[in-house]
Design a protein around this nucleic acid. Structure first.
Lengths: 344, 344
DNA sequence: ATGAAAGCGCTAACAG
DNA sequence: CTGTTAGCGCTTTCAT
């Protein structure tokens, strides 16, 4: 399996390198017979193009970067990545994840990628950037597309759900069930310094609650614990339950910002003797596999599809097209399961 | 953000390209002052290397491919990938997933990658290859490392759990609990034509059962349904439960090949009126998040660590080192939770 | 329809 | 310590 180059194929087929190049890439202006011969030789010699050489010569890298905050193993990230991969790989692109755990790595990424065309496009998942970064992104000549990024600034396109509207649906649903006191529980364990759909959702909760006539005393917000010392999960959730139960007005309708936090919270709530849904309704967000396991009422979203749509926009942009609708709002829907019930 | 090349930096710093190259790559034989000046200019001009040019010139791509069967969003795959990413990216490598859903894509991968150094190494997750592929892999001059691949043939190194031994532990545990009739439930929904830890585990179950003195009538195996028509999940699992309950000798100890299948199975079992663990013990495999949610006794493994170890071996191989222990057995441990109980 | 030639941006000896 | 000289393997005009 010694490395064979296009020159080897050319020699074997008795043609020039450029002919081989054209033939193998399916360009026109090459005699069918010649093409056949070339293809046969290429095959025989196990030839394949060197991506580096191709991209150096052509200026196209056939690679797109996908920026992920914190981890690729989370439900959202892995599915969004997969959706993007699915459509991009079909067009021959390599899709390279860049997992950015910290600000430092973000900086490193920004320092290396932009300048010299190392990728043809960038897809960004979930996180928001500071103004300086947005600036840089905006100046980039390659397409930058978002997947559930909270802001469009600096991006050429994007696909995202409407967190604000979705939280509105949840709040109104809870109100319709007769809950007069509501709580919002932020993602308890959140290592990433970037993700902020959490903040957006909290905002949506607050707005909707106000619009629905809930007073300041009728709502309680338990924020994300970003910089806390490491404790075991159990402690974290019982702490949250403690806050919930010790509120002046005990909430009966709980919005949890992500399903992943809902399962342990439910368990803790029940351990403390509360009955869900009889005493308390709980609504999650995502509809990940854990939601169906614990029979959680939750806001459904489809990250795979978000990834696909983002990738399609990327492809269009790469093809030089102008998007009629650069930023798409992806659908979301409330799935009613067993953790919510009419109160009273 | 116009593309600046190493030549621009050289001109700006008043030195030659090769000096810039040396300076920026941290090689010795460059005057500290010169280096400073070069770095300053590079910074000012937002210079960064073109990977394509570097790899074309140096022969190193600084990229490693990770072959994944079916999906990157599964618990095992996403974590194994992440582990590999973690150690590889720290050394400056891009790590590129290749998700192979079908034989066709596997073929395409084999056709494109091997010949011309497009990656420096390949890491393969979970799946086994046919002899022809192993042959090709073996002939490859770049390192090929496995993560939980059932066979070592064609690989230069690997990190994997011992499925056979782990199943032995499960079977003996169930026996110790007094279960006289056992069942093995294969992964019910399995689109991939490659994964086969399933088959290996089934094998391990059979071997251990025999070794423990279980007769042919004392065990029942419900195989993976690979090529079945699409049905809803519910139906699939109730079908399994039906098989379990209609067996001549009804099993009381159930081994499920993956946790992901255990949660729905448990639900279905209970829906049919069976009490777990009182009437039946259920043991899973993986210890993924669903296991702790449903309080499942299961065999724990750490895919992230498997990915890390595989990546470290890859790095060592890339550095030309000879591994003292090319193939490592990764630890596994039975986690006792609430779905198992002494029978009778 | 095909070939020749000039790079793409960088690394790697080899001189100096 | 630094510059010169060749390529790496391919694409791309431009001729023919």
């Amino acid at each position: 399996m010694t490395r064979t180059t296009i020159a080897d194929v050319a020699k074997a087929a008795g043609v020039s390198v450029s002919t081989v190049s054209r033939a193998l890439r399916g360009l026109d202006r090459v005699n069918p017979e010649t093409r056949q011969r070339v293809e046969a030789e290429a095959n025989r010699l196990h030839f394949s193009f060197s991506k580096s050489a191709s991209s150096l010569a052509s200026g196209k890298t056939m690679r797109v970067a996908v920026l992920l905050p914190s981890e690729i193993s989370s439900w959202f990230n892995s599915h969004a990545f997969e959706g993007a991969y699915e459509v991009l790989s079909a067009e021959g692109y390599d899709v390279i994840p860049y997992i950015l755990w910290s600000q430092k790595e973000l900086d490193r990424f920004f320092q290396n990628l932009p300048g010299n065309r190392n990728v043809d496009a960038i897809i960004v998942a979930s996180f928001d950037f500071d103004e300086a970064k947005k600036q840089v992104l905006g100046e980039l000549t390659i397409p930058v597309v978002g997947m559930n990024t909270p802001s469009a600034h600096g991006l050429d396109a994007g696909a995202a759900i409407d967190d604000i509207a979705a939280m509105g649906v949840i709040v109104r649903f809870l109100k319709s069930l007769g809950h007069t006191t509501l709580a919002y529980v932020g993602q308890p364990i959140n290592a990433s310094p970037f993700i902020c759909s959490d903040a957006v959702r909290e905002n949506g909760f607050l707005q909707a609650a106000e619009a629905c006539g809930y007073g300041n005393d009728d709502i309680i917000v338990i924020p994300s614990l970003r910089n806390m010392d490491v404790r075991n999960e159990q402690d974290i959730y019982s702490g949250i339950v403690a806050q919930l139960l010790s509120a002046p007005k005990q909430p009966t309708g709980i919005c949890v910002s992500v399903d992943a936090a809902a399962a342990p919270l439910l368990k803790e709530l029940r351990r403390m003797g509360w009955r869900v849904p009889q005493d308390m309704s709980v609504v999650g967000f995502d509809d990940d596999p854990s939601a169906s396991i614990v029979d959680l009422t939750t806001m459904h979203q489809n990250p795979t599809e978000i990834g696909r749509v983002a990738a399609r926009k990327t492809l269009a942009l790469l093809a030089g097209e102008t998007l009629e609708e650069p930023f798409s709002i992806m659908p979301t829907s409330l799935v009613l399961r067993g953790t919510t019930e009419r109160i009273g």
